[in-house]
Nucleic acid binder design. Structure first.
Lengths: 143, 143
DNA sequence: ATCAATAATGAAAATGAATTGCAATTTCAT
DNA sequence: ATGAAATTGCAATTCATTTTCATTATTGAT
């Protein structure tokens, strides 16, 4: 939580048990959430936390670099905890929605080369592969 | 226009000069547009075409595979004509918004390898590199 | 060419997620 | 304990997207 503390100081934030709960829950979960998903999940474990609060906590985390924000296909933002500087890319199953993360240094290197070729100074990138996961391929007897 | 004609037949569409104009304009322009951008651009060349019609034409094109739909960072959809099976990726300048397209077979191959490793059957992918373009790097004396 | 069936269009309304305003509540340094 | 300032909840707003519906245009059959 170090960088959250730093951010907290920097912007004169105060702490609250609700926000702390949200932040902890999110960081420990270690997976993707839409605001609504996180809101619903949290509702199960602790009541009296509103959607707005979850939304704002997530925004805060994104601001201080503890959460990554991204949109896959649909127009809903998804957030995921960022432990260190662990950038990773995504494999997204179009059937079940499962999201798998991966890293690949070679791809990163090639990306860098491409950017260089065009004179771009790259600060971020996103790579997403959409398809059908192994499990969904098996039980393919669906609509 | 072949695949548009096919789609037209398949879904019993009728033709109209307005839609034809939009489709032609878009396909010839050969670049990215948000619905609004295309609407404004078209307005300059021919009057009496509403936002709805542009919106619907773009959707149609996306449906029949002649236009690609994507969202970069902000939450606005952008469309681009797809000539053949020319998949390409994007370099996006965070300052001026310029979008440069590129293709890289090696990266594609590596992506394929990764997917295979996880048992994914990939049907689509997107790769975007965000940064500052050469021109914006030069005239960096801005806010 | 005329007619009926059906698609296309425009304008306005609806939708849906993201975001904000504001009053009430809580935090925290003093 | 006190007061300034942050947090929260809820309702309201925003903004792009999408849909509705009345009107107009297109097409195939006659």
């Amino acid at each position: 939580m170090k960088s959250f503390a730093r951010h907290k100081t920097k912007y004169g934030l105060k702490s609250s048990s609700k926000r702390t709960f949200i932040v902890d829950f999110f960081m420990k979960a270690g997976r993707h959430f839409t605001v609504e998903e996180l809101y619903n999940e949290i509702k199960k474990h602790r009541k009296g936390i509103s959607y707005s609060t979850v939304y704002r906590a997530l925004k805060l985390l994104a601001d201080c670099g503890l959460a990554g924000e991204s949109m896959f296909g649909d127009s809903v933002s998804r957030y995921e905890p960022i432990s260190r500087s662990d950038h990773h890319d995504h494999l997204i199953c179009s059937r079940c929605g499962r999201i798998i993360e991966f890293e690949n240094g070679k791809i990163e290197q090639l990306q860098h080369n491409v950017a260089e070729k065009y004179g771009f100074s790259v600060s971020a990138h996103r790579l997403e592969l959409y398809g059908v996961c192994r499990e969904c391929q098996r039980k393919r007897r669906r609509k």
